[in-house]
C-alpha cells in the first residue's frame, strides 16, 4: 500500500471532523462575532467581562484548579501503591478504578446527589455514629466531590502509565547511589512521570472547567459555572450569539492555558535511540538468575 492509499484510511475520521468539528466551529465563530441582526460585533466575546459572567468564569477556574490539584494529590499515592502490586492484582485494581466509568455519567451524579442531600445517606451514617449532619448538598464542596469523582481516573491512568514504564533497575540505581524513598520519588519517579501528569492535567482541567452538568445536579442550580451560563444562553434565553461569544472566550482561555502545559512536549524532540553498537535490547533479566 503506498502512502496515498494509506492516508485514505484516515478519511472517515477526516470527514467526521470536518462535519462535526470544523463546520460547527465556523458556525459558532460566526454567531460569536455577530449580533442577532447579523452585523459584526465584539460584544458577545467581551461579555465574559461583565459581573455575572466574570464571577461564573472565576468560579469555574477555581473549581477546575482545585479539582485538578486534588486529583493529582490523590493519584500519586495510589499509583505508588499500585505500582508495587503483583501484575494480576494490579490489573484488578485498575479495573476497579475504571468500573464506575461504565455507568452513565448522569446516573452517577444523581447517586451523589442522594448521598450528599441533607437527609441523604451520608448524613444518615453520620447521625448513626453520633456525629453532626453536614450540609454539603448544593454547595461548592458537592461540586468538587462530583468533578473529582468523575475525572480522577483520567488523572490517575496517564500518571500510572508513565510510572509503570520506569524500569525497576533505574529506581534501584537511585537507591544504590544513596537515595532514600523520598529522594527516589522526587529525583526519579516524579520527573519521569511528568509526561503522564501533563496529559492528566489536560484531560481533567479542561472538562472540569467547561462542564455544567455537575454544577446543575450537585450545585442545585444556585452555583453557576461558566458552562451553566453558556448552556442557558443556548437553551433558556435562546441567545445563541451571546452563548457562542462566551464559548469562544472560554475556548481561547483554555487554548492559552494548555499551550503552557503541553508546550514542552511539542518542542522536545526525542532523538529516537541513536544506537550504534550491539543489540541493546536485552531481555528483562530474570531476578532469580
Amino acid at each position: 500500500m503506498n502512502r496515498r492509499n494509506r492516508e485514505l484510511l484516515a478519511s472517515p475520521y477526516f470527514i467526521w471532523s470536518i462535519g462535526f468539528t470544523v463546520i460547527p466551529l465556523i458556525v459558532i465563530l460566526r454567531y460569536a462575532f455577530t449580533t442577532a441582526g447579523g452585523t459584526f460585533t465584539l460584544e458577545n466575546i467581551l461579555a465574559i467581562g461583565n459581573a455575572i459572567n466574570r464571577k461564573a468564569f472565576l468560579f469555574s477556574l477555581e473549581i477546575a484548579l482545585i479539582c485538578t490539584l486534588l486529583c493529582v494529590l490523590l493519584a500519586y499515592p495510589l499509583v505508588m501503591v499500585v505500582r508495587r502490586l503483583h501484575i494480576s492484582r494490579r490489573a484488578f485494581m485498575l479495573f476497579f478504578l475504571i468500573l464506575p466509568m461504565w455507568m452513565n455519567f448522569i446516573l452517577r451524579l444523581l447517586a451523589w446527589q442522594m448521598i450528599l442531600s441533607s437527609n441523604g445517606i451520608l448524613n444518615f451514617i453520620l447521625q448513626a455514629i453520633g456525629l453532626k449532619p453536614l450540609d454539603i448538598a448544593n454547595t461548592w464542596a458537592a461540586i468538587i466531590i462530583g468533578v473529582v469523582y468523575d475525572y480522577f481516573p483520567f488523572m490517575m491512568l496517564p500518571i500510572f502509565n508513565a510510572i509503570a514504564d520506569i524500569e525497576e533497575d533505574v529506581i534501584e540505581a537511585a537507591k544504590d547511589l544513596g537515595a532514600g524513598p523520598l529522594t527516589v520519588f522526587t529525583k526519579v519517579i516524579f520527573p519521569l512521570s511528568i509526561p503522564g501528569l501533563k496529559s492528566g492535567i489536560t484531560i481533567v482541567f479542561v472538562p472540569s472547567m467547561t462542564s455544567f452538568v455537575v454544577a446543575d445536579i450537585l450545585g442545585g442550580g444556585k452555583l453557576q459555572l461558566i458552562g451553566n451560563i453558556i448552556e442557558q444562553e443556548f437553551t433558556r434565553s435562546s441567545n445563541w450569539n451571546l452563548g457562542s461569544g462566551l464559548s469562544v472566550a472560554l475556548m481561547v482561555f483554555v487554548f492559552i492555558s494548555m499551550a503552557f502545559t503541553i508546550k514542552d512536549d511539542v518542542v522536545r524532540e526525542e532523538p529516537e535511540l541513536a544506537r550504534v553498537e550491539g543489540s541493546d535490547k536485552p531481555d528483562r533479566r530474570e531476578r532469580a538468575a
Partner: peptide
C-alpha cells in the same frame, strides 16, 4: 538498605536516569 551501603552497583541494563544528562547522572 542499599542507600546506606558503601558499595555501588553497575547494572546490566545501564539504568541511567533518562531525564538527566550525562554529567547530572554521574553527579547524582
Amino acid at each position: 538498605s542499599p542507600d546506606k551501603r558503601r558499595l555501588h552497583t553497575v547494572f546490566q541494563k545501564y539504568s541511567l536516569f533518562p531525564h538527566y544528562d550525562v554529567a547530572d547522572n554521574i553527579a547524582f
